[in-house]
Each structure stands twice: as structure tokens, then as C-alpha cells.
Design a protein around this nucleic acid. Structure first.
Lengths: 146, 146
DNA sequence: GACGACGTTGACGTTAACGTAAAGTGGTTG
DNA sequence: CAACCACTTTACGTTAACGTCAACGTCGTC
């Protein structure tokens, strides 16, 4: 209760946030090296919900964080649907009923074991790469000695 | 030269192998929980090249290992094309020219940094999950106390 | 010798995640 | 004011990685 949290992650405590900055879609796109089309697509899929000034989208810190998390999730092989599910449940958390919350914990547990497996996969794959690289270097060395 | 390698990985030293077993496509499919269709598709994409007895495909240890590596690669987000590229180069290694070998090392280095990033992503994502889970549990507890 | 399990090829269908092109809007700058 | 951005919507196109279905061959066995 009294210990101040280091920083909010998924949610940015809006009004108190130091970052009063906003972003255009193009800025965000360059920041993360994606196209505006991608960002719009994520919105259409319910992953983002930027403010509008007229027609134009205005992105806040919260949106930027979401995009970042989305892209990270993607790199880990999660589908946009999965990512959205987590985001939606997170948003619904404060007033979420017990069933929803338990479902959320279930999903999180799933993601966790998924990542455990990925860690193992990465370890194994790294050994493979080590092995292949070693052999390749051996062959190269023999070529050089001619 | 004299130190015996613990075990071959990508390539199985065929004739000396203890495993003289072969597999049908259905067996392999069940082992890895994929459909036969998937395995045939991988062959069509140049990832597998099983022996044929008449029409029927016969898979050896080497093919099984390849399939395993392929699926692992997939879980790490590599495309079939990328995986094939590595496999092809590996096969061409013994008589590979220097250019090919250097290109292989390059690819391997790419994969490595890719995986480094994934490791970092996983670490970050795990923190996110911890955070979300904590909050969810807090909310749940308050609900239980009513 | 019919049946079921398993295998084959070929072709078309499907889904996710965008790309791309067209056509229009709104601001600012020379 | 014209030209040029950056942004918008709509809509159709594309690619990877299979799924699905049809139509057929080949066993073992009841």
C-alpha cells in the first residue's frame, strides 16, 4: 500500500504521467519500424484505441506501450488474437469478476509454459548452431591450408 | 581427430547408427503431433527427403531429426524457407566452397542475435506476466474478502 | 472378397497479417 | 493559390502454412 510502485507497465497512470507527449501514427511507425498500415490494422483488431482529433489519430504514452508490448508478443510468436485477449482482460481487471480473473490467470500460466518451452528451444538451438558453426569453421580451415 | 564426438545432431552417421529403425509418415505425425499433410508439405518445401519404397515414404533417423529441428525452428518463429536454407547449407558443407561457408556463418550469426533478442523479450515478458498476475491476485483477494 | 486402416497425388480452400493502390481531407509553405 | 506533405478510408491483393476433399492404390484380416 505504502510502497510506491517503480513504474506502471501495461497501464500508464495517465494523469500523473510525466510524459505529456503525443505521437502521430507516422512517428510511432518510425519508432518501431513498422508501417502506419500495421498500426491501423492493430487498431482494427482491437489492440489499440487511440484518441481522435477529428479524423486524425493521436497516440499517447499508453498507446505506445501497448504497441511495444504487442510487437514483443509477436516476436515471441503470439497471435494478435492472443495478445488482444490479454490486453482486454487486463483492461477489464479492476471491475473484473472472479471467473474472468481466473481465466486470465489461466492464460498467463499458458503463456508462461509456452515461454519455458521457448527457453529450452533456444538453448537447444544454440547448441545446434554452435555445432554447425564449429564444423563449418573446421572445413574452412582445411580449405585455407591449401 | 581422435576424440569421438558424443553424437551427431543434424546429420546421423548413417551406417554406424545404432538406430536401424524406420518410420511411416503416420508414426512420425503422431510422435510430433502434426498431421501427415504437414510432413508432406515440408518435403515439398525441401525440408525432408525421405526414401521411397514404391510410392510409400520411408523415414529414417535422419529424417526424424530434421523434422524435430524444423518444428523447433518453427516454435522460435523461423520460416520454413529460413530453416531450409540452413539445412541445405549444412548438407552442402563437406564440399562447400568458402563463399558458401561464410554465408552460412553469417546466417548463423543472424539467428544467434535473433535468439538473444528473444531471450531478452522473454525476460521482459515474464516480468509483465508477473506484474499482471500480481494485480489479478490482488483483485481476486479483495473479492474473496466480501 | 469386402472391409478398414493407412498410404498416395492433386487441387482447391482458409486464415493471419499485413501490402498496395485509389481517392479524398487538412494544414503549411514558397 | 498551388504544391506538397501527412493523414484518412475503402477495398482488393498477397504470402505462408497448412486444411480439406476427392479419387485412388495396397495391405492384412475376418
Amino acid at each position: 500500500m505504502s510502497t510506491p510502485k517503480p513504474e506502471a507497465t501495461l497501464a500508464v497512470n495517465g494523469s500523473l504521467s510525466r510524459h505529456r507527449r503525443t505521437y502521430s501514427i507516422g512517428e510511432l511507425a518510425r519508432m518501431f519500424e513498422v508501417t502506419p498500415r500495421t498500426i491501423r490494422f492493430y487498431e482494427q483488431e482491437g489492440l489499440l484505441a487511440p484518441e481522435r482529433r477529428g479524423q486524425t489519430r493521436i497516440y499517447h504514452e499508453k498507446d505506445r506501450v501497448r504497441l511495444k508490448l504487442t510487437l514483443r508478443g509477436k516476436r515471441l510468436g503470439f497471435s494478435l488474437a492472443e495478445i488482444r485477449e490479454v490486453i482486454e482482460m487486463y483492461d477489464a481487471m479492476p471491475d473484473g469478476n472472479a471467473r474472468q480473473l481466473k481465466r486470465l490467470l489461466e492464460i498467463l500460466s499458458d503463456k508462461r509454459s509456452n515461454m519455458e518451452r521457448q527457453l529450452e528451444d533456444i538453448r537447444l538451438m544454440q547448441r545446434e548452431l554452435d555445432d554447425v558453426e564449429m564444423r563449418a569453421r573446421e572445413v574452412l580451415e582445411r580449405l585455407d591450408q591449401n
